[in-house]
Design a protein around this nucleic acid. Sequence first.
DNA 1: ATTACATATCGAGATATATAGATATGTTTT
DNA 2: AAAACATATCTATATATCTCGATATGTAAT
Lengths: 100, 100
Amino acid sequence: MDIVEINKVLSNQIRIDILNWLKKPEDNFPKQIYVPDFSDGVCVCHIQDKSGLSQSTVSHYLNMMQKVDLLIATRHGKWTYYRRNESEILKYIQTLSNEL
Amino acid sequence: MDIVEINKVLSNQIRIDILNWLKKPEDNFPKQIYVPDFSDGVCVCHIQDKSGLSQSTVSHYLNMMQKVDLLIATRHGKWTYYRRNESEILKYIQTLSNEL
DNA sequence: ATTACATATCGAGATATATAGATATGTTTT
DNA sequence: AAAACATATCTATATATCTCGATATGTAAT
């Protein structure tokens, strides 16, 4: 749990937005086609559409969010799905509460 | 309360350290000479000594921490004292808890 | 096997941050 | 008023981040 690294990741509004959108995928993204529900998260293409950023930028953002364990990635076929890592997010907030 | 701006400020270990040192000034800094206690905080020169950074860098860091309301500055004579803004720090953590 | 597609990675230019030394400002002491 | 001192601001260079288009990789469909 590297607080400084996580804070860098969270120093960007779009990345915070992504974390928020993934709280309620049903409310923020269209139904997915090749998986029955959002239990593994949302595919990159939908997040890209919603963010308005380029494919490479979104992929990069999601990767950095995964590297600090804010997100979990799962691959199904040619799609990669990202979802929140709730326990790490909670741990981050608790660590902040203690260490700030 | 601009979460992104605060996160930028907290994306640096020394700045987090400063926030921590100011939790217990008695434990982290030498006695001050021209004020009776730490109730207005710690003067820039002591924070500079402890951090090992240049005077201009420390002044810049403290200023940016004050701009986002993490710190409060008070001037006494030629010294400027900085202390934690506890209510804003708490508000920041609460906001994060809600918005992440 | 080839094509099509989703995502990841690479390379690059623009912008922001880090950090220092030099200088300016404001205060106190002489 | 001059000197000394603490802090703030300015200027500059090095490094990091942002963001994109181009390319590579992996998977699925034909």
